[in-house]
């Protein structure tokens, strides 16, 4: 059902990702201002950061520091490669699910580099904090993806979509879906999981970044959030399945819906403090996803 598109569509995938991320940023601007005038804020911010000096700090490890934000952006773009748009996918990898997971882990390295390289106390603490968050969200996330692969009997994203032609995975894997959404927020350090970039750390990872570097980090954050929202569609929401409209449009609509939900959450909830979340994740979320995987495995065996 999902087929490999020509190679050049990889660029198209990047463009679509960027466009969706821009929509998310503009939507966030509107939400902050509570009126349409706020839509210009992200654009103005981009202009400001482009014209700003890239500063450095005393004894910063510039090579590592500067490569961090770029790594986040690249990771998001690579992760989006395996997400099918309707009936076409830029890269029909046989291990697409694992690929997405691996690229999401690249964000860890990128963010840690951002935190460490600046040689500032805020950045290092934020880097530690992201690692604690990463270790806490990663295992439930992995088990959620495992559950999806288990239900489909394949690691290929196309097969996952095909397996949902009868019933969407979100219906019979609700726990995995919730764990996935939590991980999506956490990997983009967004919403209630923005502790590594929070005001209480003076901006945390971005505390010492300015100019293009700051722009890249923020763009990477939106791109990662978008990629995570986009992957939820083939993994849980039936990909491009839907009545009347063409499949690619359904994919886009569902992505925008998930993305809109994630962006909307930002203002609704306070930041989760890491020491609280790690315990919750290890003691509640992880066993819950394991049980979910077990149930799905039993269903698959009996089917």
């Amino acid at each position: 059902m999902v087929r490999q598109a020509p190679l050049w569509t990889a660029l198209l995938a990047g463009a679509v990702l960027l466009a969706l991320a821009t929509i998310a940023a503009v939507g966030r601007g509107v939400a902050v201002a509570r009126r349409a005038a706020g839509a210009g804020t992200p654009v103005a911010e981009v202009a400001r950061l482009l014209a700003q000096q890239r500063r450095s700090t005393l004894a910063a490890d510039r090579l590592l520091w500067r490569s961090g934000p770029a790594a986040v952006c690249v990771a998001a773009a690579l992760a989006a490669l395996v997400v099918p748009l309707g009936r076409w996918t830029a890269w029909d990898s046989p291990v697409g699910v694992v690929w997405f997971n691996a690229m999401e882990v690249v964000v860890w390295a990128g963010l840690w580099l951002v935190g460490w390289g600046a040689n500032s106390v805020w950045g290092v603490v934020a880097g530690y904090r992201f690692l604690a968050q990463g270790l806490a969200y990663e295992l439930p996330h992995m088990f959620a993806l495992t559950t999806v692969a288990l239900g489909a009997g394949s690691l290929r994203v196309g097969d996952v979509v095909a397996a949902q032609s009868g019933l969407w995975f979100v219906v019979w894997m609700p726990v995995a879906f919730v764990a996935y959404l939590v991980a999506a927020l956490a990997m983009a350090f967004w919403g209630p999981f923005d502790a590594p970039a929070q005001a209480d750390l003076a901006g945390g990872l971005g505390a010492e970044l300015s100019g293009v570097d700051a722009l890249l980090l923020r763009a990477g954050r939106y791109l990662m959030l978008t990629a995570a929202a986009a992957f939820a569609v083939p993994a849980f929401l039936g990909g491009g399945a839907g009545p009347l409209l063409p499949a690619w449009l359904w994919s886009l609509l569902k992505t925008v819906a998930v993305l809109g939900f994630l962006v909307w959450l930002r203002d609704r909830l306070p930041t989760v403090r890491m020491e609280r979340y790690t315990e919750l994740s290890w003691l509640v979320l992880l066993p819950a996803t394991l049980v979910q995987a077990l149930l799905v495995a039993i269903v698959v065996l009996l089917r």
């Binding site: 691996a102 390295a109 840690w112 460490w116 270790l135």
Partner: peptide
């Protein structure tokens, strides 16, 4: 070996980032 290659990337990034913390 698509799976093993991607697995090495995934595992090693996590390992190395954790390693960096111990290193500090």
């Amino acid at each position: 070996l698509a799976y093993l290659g991607v697995l090495v990337i995934l595992m090693m990034i996590m390992e190395m980032v954790v390693m960096a913390v111990f290193m500090i």
